[in-house]
Design a protein around this nucleic acid. Sequence first.
DNA 1: CCATTACAGACTTTATGAGTCCATAATAAC
DNA 2: GTTATTATGGACTCATAAAGTCTGTAATGG
Lengths: 132, 132
Amino acid sequence: MKYSQATDYALHAMLYLVAAAPDKPVGVQLLAEKLGVSQTYLSKMMTKLVKAGLIQSAPGANGGYRLRRKQEDISFLDIIHAIEGTASFFECSLNHDNECVIQKVVLDAERQMEQYLQNKKISELAEHFKGR
Amino acid sequence: MKYSQATDYALHAMLYLVAAAPDKPVGVQLLAEKLGVSQTYLSKMMTKLVKAGLIQSAPGANGGYRLRRKQEDISFLDIIHAIEGTASFFECSLNHDNECVIQKVVLDAERQMEQYLQNKKISELAEHFKGR
DNA sequence: CCATTACAGACTTTATGAGTCCATAATAAC
DNA sequence: GTTATTATGGACTCATAAAGTCTGTAATGG
């Protein structure tokens, strides 16, 4: 079980937006260059982030992406969910009547992880990121 | 990101072994019937559990599988690791010098989840499972 | 010896991740 | 208004892994 590389890229892109956070929006071209990934591919993830309401996009010259919310309000979980979706890690495939005790345990475990990721904001890492 | 169905089967099989825990070993035939999965497929997962040291196998007539350790010593995490492997959820694909702060966060989150799964033993569920 | 069981490897099928390519739409600058 | 610049969308390819089947081999109890 692994998070997709798309999530990796999205997290880095968001971190860049927060760290470099200028008034000017930053385009996918620059982002892609920084991350070492193709523009067209990265743009797909950026669009997901837009649809999730995390960032704003503007077409045209001097367009690009900028944060929509305050940076302190953007958590790791927000970004991960925007890319990976919100489906849970585990779904019991057996058809025992309704509630599967095993599934319950795994979902509780997942909740532990998600709670951690929700409390962790990217803004906390912005300092570290300066100069990359 | 999702756990494989194989993990689902393995967890249920182990729960059955714990709950039905007889002195007689139980064969893959019975297990497969209970879980509604093919014998040959399930046997692959059982073999992994054997190699992970969680259960013991015996060929021949009246053979089958039985627990190797005390049932209180078998955690959810043990079983999951036996099937899924122990690789972590996240690996940064960018080549910034060594430590990726993003990766650190996600790995910490994963550790939260794994800690929960390690403290959770299948024996705790054995009661619920009686009569399935 | 024979039936029963686990183990191993080769194979198929299907789904998903990862990525490319190209066309379209919107906007700012001139 | 035209043009350059940007985002968005869909269709497409390719590789890898999950999910499962089939068949044969080996070990053990009766």
